[in-house]
């Protein structure tokens, strides 16, 4: 799945809508050389535009290496690429701009982007 699937995955999810009820931001999501502009309002992904953009204006930019993003979206993501903060720790994710919407809604951002994963990981027993 691609970031363009986010509105259908997020907007009908009552948990994400509740968590994000105060979340408003224009987020530039850059994966490798590709870019998407996510317009977030009240925890919904109101629109997604696919770049390239000549003069983008955004609240917050999330830039992720392509290989790391692909691993993040795999059904059983490997250690170090299973979480946005893990990617940050490994310097494969970079945040720019106003970080307040991101940090005040950290669980929302982690869960919303993880909806693009095809299958959840199985429990270890």
């Amino acid at each position: 799945m691609t970031p363009e699937d986010l509105p259908s995955l997020v907007n009908g999810n009552p948990m994400l809508r509740r968590w994000g009820r105060f979340l408003d931001a224009d987020v530039l999501l850059a994966v490798g050389t590709e870019e998407w502009m996510l317009r977030l309002r009240d925890g919904a992904v109101e629109s997604v535009r696919h770049g390239p953009f000549l003069m983008p204006s955004w609240t917050l930019a999330i830039r992720i290496e392509l290989e790391a993003w692909q691993a993040f979206l795999s059904p059983e993501p490997p250690p170090g690429r299973h979480d946005l903060m893990a990617l940050l720790r490994g310097r494969e994710l970079r945040l720019e701009g106003n970080l307040h919407p991101f940090m005040s809604h950290l669980l929302w951002f982690k869960a919303a982007l993880a909806t693009l994963r095809s299958q959840p990981a199985r429990a270890a027993a």
Binding site: E76, H82, D83, S104, K110, P120, A124
Partner: peptide, 18 residues
């Protein structure tokens, strides 16, 4: 920033997805 929610958000990914 809500302290409880951000602290949980900071540590949530430290757990194994399995």
């Amino acid at each position: 920033v809500h302290g409880g929610e951000v602290c949980a958000g900071i540590v949530s990914g430290l757990m194994a997805p399995q």
